[in-house]
């Protein structure tokens, strides 16, 4: 981020400052909260390091065992499912495609919708905006049966298109971009007009670069949201080759449990860790952008 101009002031606590009791209290609460939130992840990790038999007999494990690498290896590269076609890697790939397609698609779509609403003298622009906004009241879960009908009718079941496209319309994204565009000074648009920038050039040369922190913030939210999609992928993908991690974990465990074997707990736990990682990494690495997108306008 070499182009950051308003760098956040870094608060450096003066050395040797007396630590006040309230600070200790605050940190105690924070650390306790962090531990509480982290504990399940820790236990997932420790449990993933044991043999299925041990887990089956003794339940969740608190200490590390010796099977961590084997379980991860099996989870990621071992063949699974009924068909034996899916591996952790293929599910990871599907999840990434879903997360990326979901986030990028939503951003492109909602940005263009907001652009149309804010900058073009459309008839009923405000009305159109509110219509888009009220779709917040109709999440996928409400319209899932008709959506399924439409997608299968179009022959898009078991395709990435069918997986991603029905989820793309985003009232939230449109709303955020609209508010942001409204805060961009009118003179900037006029200056661009005088500089000979048409609608497309203005969008690409001015609006997109100006919105980059906003785009990053929305990307994070939407990627995590898309990554965690469960219901729609479960419905629309029956082909195991299109399974995402989030739904695959359950499938692996279930499919093995239905045959007379001990469920592959270790692998499921390993996959859970894998499934947690990308959203966490994205948030960790992009959190600066995320915060900037929410608090700073850089105009």
């Amino acid at each position: 981020m070499t182009d950051t101009t308003l760098s956040m002031p870094v608060q450096v606590a003066p050395r040797g400052r007396r630590i006040r009791l309230s600070v200790i209290g605050d940190h105690f609460v924070l650390i306790l909260g962090a531990l509480f939130m982290m504990a399940p992840i820790y236990m997932t990790l420790t449990t993933a390091s044991h043999e299925n038999l041990t887990i089956h007999r003794e339940g969740l494990q608190f200490l590390f065992g010796g099977e961590l690498l084997n379980n991860f290896d099996a989870a990621m590269f071992g063949q699974g499912g009924f068909s034996g076609e899916i591996t952790g890697m293929s599910m990871l790939k599907n999840s990434l495609i879903l997360g990326m397609g979901f986030a990028l698609g939503k951003i492109v779509l909602s940005m263009m919708a907001a652009y149309a609403i804010v900058y073009f003298r459309l008839r009923f622009a405000t009305f159109a905006f509110w219509v888009i906004f009220t779709t917040l009241l109709l999440p996928l879960e409400v319209r899932i049966v008709p959506s399924y009908e439409v997608i299968t009718g179009l022959g898009l079941a078991n395709t990435y298109t069918g997986l991603i496209v029905p989820l793309l319309a985003s009232a939230t994204g449109t709303f955020f971009f609209r508010q942001y565009f409204l805060s961009i000074p009118e003179e900037l648009v006029e200056a661009a007009r005088i500089d000979g920038a048409g609608p497309v050039k203005f969008f690409i040369d001015i609006l997109v670069p100006l919105s980059r922190t906003m785009i990053a913030a929305i990307f994070i939210v939407m990627f995590v949201y898309g990554w965690n999609q469960y219901l729609w992928p479960t419905l629309i993908t029956t082909d195991e080759g299109l399974y995402t991690l989030v739904r695959g974990i359950k499938q692996i465990r279930q499919s093995l449990a239905e045959s007379n074997q001990i469920p592959a707990y270790g692998q499921a736990m390993a996959l859970s860790i894998i499934a947690i990682l990308p959203p966490v990494l994205i948030v960790v690495f992009l959190q600066n952008w995320f915060i900037k997108g929410l608090v700073e306008s850089d105009k």
Partner: peptide, 30 residues
């Protein structure tokens, strides 16, 4: 005619510079 075709240049009250472009690019954009 469109503003761009009128052979004019305008200076705005709040400058209306493109915040994401350098000074040089701001001047060169038109």
């Amino acid at each position: 005619l469109d503003p761009a075709e009128r052979d004019i240049a305008m200076v705005f009250q709040n400058y209306a510079l493109y915040p994401h472009m350098t000074v040089g690019k701001n001047m060169a954009y038109g």
